[in-house]
Amino acid sequence: MEPGQSQVDLHTVVDVEISALSVSDSPRISGENQEHIELLAVADAPLPPIIVHRGTLRVIDGAHRLRAAERRGWSTIPVRFFDGDDADAFVLAVESNTGHGLPLTKAERKRAAERIIASHPIWSNRMIASIAGVAPATVAKVRRRMPGDASAEGGRVGQDGRFRPLDGAQGRRLAAELIAADPDLSLRQIAQRTGISPETARDVRNRISRGEEPLLAARGKRGGQPERGPGRPPGPRPAFGGSATRTRMPVADRRRVLDRLKGDPALRYSDTGRTLLRLLGIHTVSPEEWEKITDGLPQGHRRTVAQLARAYADNWSELAHRAAERETAAPVGVREVQALGGNRTVPNGNRTVPGGMW
Rank of each mutant, 00 (worst) to 15 (best):
R232V: 12
L40D: 01
R256H: 07
D264K: 14
P48L: 08
D88E: 15
V142P: 07
G223I: 10
I190K: 06
R210L: 02
R54W: 09
V42L: 04
T345M: 15
G235Y: 00
S124E: 04
A201F: 01
R260D: 10
T304K: 13
G195A: 13
A118D: 14
G62I: 12
F90E: 02
L66I: 12
R173V: 15
H283L: 02
R322L: 08
A132P: 07
A266N: 09
A129C: 07
E35H: 14
G263V: 11
A320C: 06
V353H: 13
L174P: 03
V16A: 02
A132N: 12
A150M: 13
N315T: 01
L258R: 08
V139T: 10
D203H: 08
E2G: 10
N33G: 10
S151N: 11
N350K: 05
P121Y: 09
A112T: 01
S6V: 11
G31R: 14
P230V: 13
P136Y: 05
A93Y: 05
V334Q: 08
A339N: 14
V285T: 00
V139Q: 09
V59S: 07
A118N: 14
G242Q: 11
R172C: 09
V91Q: 03
T275R: 15
P214D: 00
P265T: 12
I50W: 00
E327V: 01
N343I: 12
Q192R: 15
A43G: 05
A175P: 05
R188T: 10
T76G: 06
R326P: 00
A68T: 04
R143S: 13
G342Y: 07
S151V: 13
A239N: 04
T304I: 11
W358D: 11
R111H: 09
G235R: 01
A132H: 13
A313D: 00
P236E: 06
N343M: 10
